[in-house]
Design a protein around this nucleic acid. Sequence first.
DNA 1: ATGCTGTGAGAACATTTGGAGAACATTACT
DNA 2: AGTAATGTTCTCCAAATGTTCTCACAGCAT
Lengths: 201, 201
Amino acid sequence: MQTDRHREVYDFLGAYIARHGHAPKLREIADHLGIRSRGVVHRYLSALRDEGLIAVEPFVSRGVRLRGRGRAAAKTATLPLLGRIAAGQPIEAIPGEDEIDLSEFFVNANRFVLRVQGDSMIEDGILDGDMVVVEKRDTADNGEIVVALIDGQEATLKRLQKNRDDSVTLKPANARLSPLRLSAARVRIQGVVVGQFRSYR
Amino acid sequence: MQTDRHREVYDFLGAYIARHGHAPKLREIADHLGIRSRGVVHRYLSALRDEGLIAVEPFVSRGVRLRGRGRAAAKTATLPLLGRIAAGQPIEAIPGEDEIDLSEFFVNANRFVLRVQGDSMIEDGILDGDMVVVEKRDTADNGEIVVALIDGQEATLKRLQKNRDDSVTLKPANARLSPLRLSAARVRIQGVVVGQFRSYR
DNA sequence: ATGCTGTGAGAACATTTGGAGAACATTACT
DNA sequence: AGTAATGTTCTCCAAATGTTCTCACAGCAT
């Protein structure tokens, strides 16, 4: 896509075809761009055709078809980071940091994802259905959220607290559930939660 | 990379291209650097070209391409998805779904990320410091979490409820805060929250 | 002091990009 | 056939953008 205008034309074609089921006429494209000359529109279409992005049936009205919607474009894992949002203020830009790389944020060797079932960590903002990113480790610090295996049988997600007497307490973040105090021998740490994410869909 | 300024230019190119899919114009680079002279920008680009870091198409607008980005593109954004975890059971494998692609999960054109400040959505599991992925839209359905601009001034993150009398209610997810009922004319939807993530680090 | 380097301003110029509109070709329709 | 609508091709023009200069200044080393 050479220029901004080319992109606008291409995007408009996509939107129009999606809505109407057929391509627009040159006149309609011109209206959308705010120009009067069908000749100019034709020039844009020719450029897009030469790039292989569309196919044009000569002299046929609405004879444009989109091509190569394969979307083979290297899907990057970055999103623009616009700023901070808080109640009462407009969105505030974060200086010097204008994009966020999801893979840098989360991806690493020896990490994996679990889908959380249940409300045991709800007060820490981990809801039923959320995903947690877990880093494989067999030790953890006080206060970290861990995946723990009890008696080699039950796996749970809890906040860890080590006690002096060689026991540990597994604390849910939910007032309706009670902490579990167990001898250290019965608990095996499988990993530590390093991230969490959720999709609203 | 010769100087700090060169690195700034290079980084900006990367960020801009990642976001827009094409390079910036000299004028835009100059604005980002806080300088007025396109000539100076051109000097930086020539230096980067001589180092082999970018390729420049002469005289064409946005004619800059990054070079040797093979490594960065190879960075996959996938993590193994081990299964489901719930209190009382061992980790249960999720059949047929063994890895999760973060970019598929979150990345899309016309989305951006905001860092949340404040506790107004805490009961929906969006905590102070969390990131939300927002899809740019100017309309939203009932019950969706939206970024709304009030009177063109204040931006807030709230749950939307449309009322019959051409007003809307912006509901925080925090019992200590009260809902805000406003005439629809005063509220402009800027986007809808489609995802959320958090890093424990 | 002298020169070198990195940075920026801005003028002058080259080239591309974007647009207008006329003239013509093709198609669809009466 | 005749007409209108639409696509095609063309020339001319203006604005935007990139390119190439010279000048200026500040910091630094010699």
